[in-house]
């Protein structure tokens, strides 16, 4: 059985700021990042959907420690965002000094952009990752 969205296609779309997910036709759950099955009911009756890329920050951490070869990215803020369609997704946060983020970040509305991690000797190639930035509340009212 083949994946409906493999990483290669997800990555290609994210590089155009498009976020691909899978909507379950049985239970309605949206799965993103994509998996083989629905992350709630394990069903395979899903269709590929493009998500809004908007959501709210659920938690964060600003890292001063990174892996071999990535020291130049520090400090970096990692966020977990709940997308408006339901799923949680990990990304980075732009437009904010990583050293200044605090608990007030939780609940902030954000929208999707991206940046490409060029890869390292173990990663089997590049990977785009979501980079979020603040959006005005009014956009979604």
């Amino acid at each position: 059985m083949e994946y409906k969205v493999i990483f290669k296609d997800y990555n290609k779309a994210l590089k155009r700021n498009k976020l691909l997910g899978l909507k379950c036709n049985d239970c309605g759950t949206v799965t993103c990042p994509p998996m083989m099955v629905c992350q709630e009911c394990a069903g395979t009756n899903q269709e590929v959907v493009e998500l809004s890329g908007k959501g709210q920050v659920l938690t964060f951490t600003t890292s001063y420690l990174n892996s071999e070869g990535r020291e130049n990215e520090l400090p970096i803020t990692i966020v977990m965002v709940q997308l408006d369609e339901g799923p949680w997704i990990m990304g980075n946060l732009d437009d904010v000094d990583p050293k200044r983020v605090n608990m007030k970040l939780i609940g902030k509305r954000v929208g999707l952009g991206h940046r490409v991690f060029p890869g390292d000797r173990y990663s089997a190639g590049e990977a785009a990752r979501p980079v979020f930035s603040y959006i005005e509340q009014i956009e979604n009212v």
């Binding site: 990483f7 990042p33 890292s63 420690l65 990174n66 892996s67 990535r70 990215e73 970096i76 990692i78 990990m90 990304g91 980075n92 991690f117 990663s123 990977a127 785009a128 990752r129 979501p130």
Partner: peptide, 8 residues
């Protein structure tokens, strides 16, 4: 899906 963000 997660390491590229700097996740450790």
């Amino acid at each position: 899906y997660e390491f590229p963000t700097g996740f450790t």
